[in-house]
Design a protein around this nucleic acid. Sequence first.
DNA 1: ATACCTGCAAAAACTTTGCAATTCG
DNA 2: CGAATTGCAAAGTTTTTGCAGGTAT
Lengths: 149, 149
Amino acid sequence: VIRDPRAHLAELEKRCASAGLPVTAQRRTILQALVTRHDHPTAEQLYSAVAERLPDVSRATVYRTLDTLSDLGLLRRVAHPGSAVRFDGNTAPHHHFLCERCGSMEDLPLDALPGAADLVLADAGERVAREIAVSVHGRCAACARAAAD
Amino acid sequence: VIRDPRAHLAELEKRCASAGLPVTAQRRTILQALVTRHDHPTAEQLYSAVAERLPDVSRATVYRTLDTLSDLGLLRRVAHPGSAVRFDGNTAPHHHFLCERCGSMEDLPLDALPGAADLVLADAGERVAREIAVSVHGRCAACARAAAD
DNA sequence: ATACCTGCAAAAACTTTGCAATTCG
DNA sequence: CGAATTGCAAAGTTTTTGCAGGTAT
């Protein structure tokens, strides 16, 4: 999976324009920091990455910007069993792999789980299902090697 | 889905004995508080529930006990996009429904998603897959009604 | 008896908010 | 120029840790 930050930055311009919001250096830098990585970083990890380019950026800006970009549909908060929220810059449909040992989270391409697209919620009752997410839990490559001793 | 707390408490006795750990009132009460509900409470919610029976219990004990019970395999931390960790007392295989509006999380029985049991991770590489979890995202019954205005 | 647990209090980690100064369009 | 954003500092949440005293086996 290769991601071109330029396409994401173009989307940022477009959606900010539609919403009447300014495109700031912080928004560009934070979005770029997120989409150029394939793990699912916490706000703190993004803060560290962004601080290398914008040394005066504050954590408050990182948190607020992540909310804004999420409202604009440019990124998503993802479910994680850990004690800090994780973010995903990949807005295309895909699955996740969660390592139970180190807590890391990786993207899985759609075709890694044949049949997942056919899942349908039977007997939804009054619930409205919008999306079905599949995540595989186990050991990531590094932790599988470590466990082999 | 009906759960008998007695069976869970018996498991607690057994696993503590195997591990050489004492069975305390706090461990019994916290486990019982969790397994008798079908939402996926935070540590704070469990603290409130437990405090009704053990008024002097501390949050630190709730956090530590949840870790211990998780190590014993009596409950699980579940993935949630919110900013506090959630716990699940249902250790049998099942799926989850996550409401995008109110953040609530409900159990779904296995047969709510026919085909989910057949999913297999293709091309796992060095990863070791242990379990495949499916979660449906959308609006819970209460929020679907609210949205209808 | 002894190893483990608990409560308390303090600290650490994570996230949000108010406000004055700045930046974008 | 005006509206929205940013950094700072402070406050609010959530989670962890050290330690003295208590409890289960």
